[in-house]
Amino acid sequence: MKIDDLEKLENEGAENLPSEERRRFLRFGLAVTGVFVGGSVLSLTSARKAQSDMGPVPATGAFPYKPHYTMVIRQNRCIDCERCLEACAKTNNVPSYGYRTTILQREREIERGAKERVFMPVLCNHCNRPPCVRVCPTTATYKDKKNGIVMMDYKRCIGCKTCMAACPYNARYFKEENRAIDKCNFCYDTRLSKGESKTACAAACPAGVRIFGDLTDYDSEAYKLIHMPDKVVWVLRPETGAMPNVFYMND
């Protein structure tokens, strides 16, 4: 197969490969390095593809959905006041033992041994290639064809929790009341479909951490934020190839 043909194939990610496939790939890798040791470096990635992999933000115009919902998290502004969590729980009837979104915390060493607290809000990343959707045996979880939100059809869910294991972001929990998996759906049923423009968490945030928006609207704050040339934008766990739609930055 030529590289041009290979590029047309969809990346299925490495996490679902059968072990035989892995072994064959490793053997191939060893053979290549054995042949080329001390010689020139062989790149199996074409230069064009490598360029597009430079950052986590897709090229303008390459957003598959309309609207293409996103959340931009200005991480350094988060003070863990947890108003977003309260608003989410209230709006979406989230029980005390689970969460649709939460805030992680860590300490980072900065200059002269001083420590800095970092709060990191996390939620479903509504991936373009969602691993949870791929593994669901009953298609209870699906990616909405129009707006790209990863949704749940509770009636179809058999509670096997395979999607919980597949999710790279730990964004799902089993809701006892529904006997089904529950997760963030960007407040689609509770707010967006009723004409609201923001999710409950974004509306409740007093510090402008969570900016909800549509990437196909080039005038939206979310689009502008992640396309500022002087800011670094990152996503969580890019190596999974899931192409998440929640972007992080400091401002």
Binding site: N76, A89, Y97, Q105, E176
Partner: peptide, 29 residues
């Protein structure tokens, strides 16, 4: 600037006042 120098958040509040974290009740099966 440096928001988290003073803001320890709900987690910090619970740690400092010894309050039990809310919404973390054990799961009943």
């Amino acid at each position: 600037t440096r928001c988290t120098s003073c803001h320890a958040g709900v987690k910090g509040y619970n740690r400092l006042t010894g309050a039990a974290p809310q919404g973390k009740a054990p799961v009943k099966h």
